[in-house]
Write a protein that binds this DNA or RNA. Structure first.
Lengths: 136, 136
DNA sequence: CGGCATCCTAAGGGATACTG
DNA sequence: CAGTATCCCTTAGGATGCCG
């Protein structure tokens, strides 16, 4: 149930409020890697190099940046072990885990409706492509 | 055409798969306006100018682009009324509505944990700011 | 190993002007 | 009204190299 909370406000307020929340949300998750890292850590703690290996398309710069960002937001816990060579572990905080749960429905949605979206795209594209030489 | 041909799933592909789904998801929602528009349309159909007024921070360029994108993905239905002056209505498709439901938990999460995140940020920032003149 | 610092490009997106 | 087209600037983020 979506319950009343969401719409218990006036029209413009819905906009302003929603806008704020959504910006908040996006600022936290909408970059290229945050969600992916959160999902990986959802399976258990990992050290830096493990993450880097598992997501080998990511640059170490981005891995570092994203982890810092997540750490700053209290979603990820960073543990530095004072050994040589250095070892750093990352894991989800409980806050991070709660976020992960909130993300699940969305990932599920994506998986379940991927084909519908692809189909819609196909329809859209072919319906306006045929006449004209569609732009690249 | 694009589906099925995708991949054979192996261990690294667990990552690749998640990565793929998440990239998919983000490509659809992670821009500055899509989610917001979806939420607005979740309350009911709107015409172009109404959306523009309600989200008045958006440029008409971005409004158009975003709506086209959503339409292409089958999330939004665009109806042109052949009148002068022109009138165009936008509404969520059932696919769009299903997405909206999947988004709700996340919006709720954001609202409920906003303060925790802010607090974590504060802690993080003050814990490394005091010694050094923090960079811009 | 884990991470900064630097450089550089591609894309996102705002402002403005024009059109059917 | 509901767009399109252009220009322009800011940002994300990849590649590379150095350091404790």
């Amino acid at each position: 149930m979506e319950d009343g909370t969401f719409k218990s406000v006036t029209h413009t307020d819905v906009c302003a409020t929603a806008s704020c929340e959504i910006r908040d949300l996006l600022d936290r998750l909408a970059d290229k890697w945050s969600l992916l890292i959160i999902e990986m850590l959802g399976e258990g703690a990992r050290r830096f190099s493990e993450l880097h290996r598992e997501i080998d398309q990511i640059s170490q710069r981005m891995l570092t940046l994203t982890l810092r960002h997540l750490e700053r937001d209290g979603l990820v816990l960073r543990t530095v072990h004072p050994v040589v060579p250095p070892r750093v572990d990352y894991e989800l905080t409980s806050l991070g885990e709660s976020l992960l749960s909130a993300v699940f429905p969305l990932v599920t949605w994506t998986r379940e409706h991927r084909h519908e979206v692809a189909a819609a795209r196909g329809t859209y594209d072919t319906r306006r492509a045929p006449g004209e030489h569609s732009r690249v």
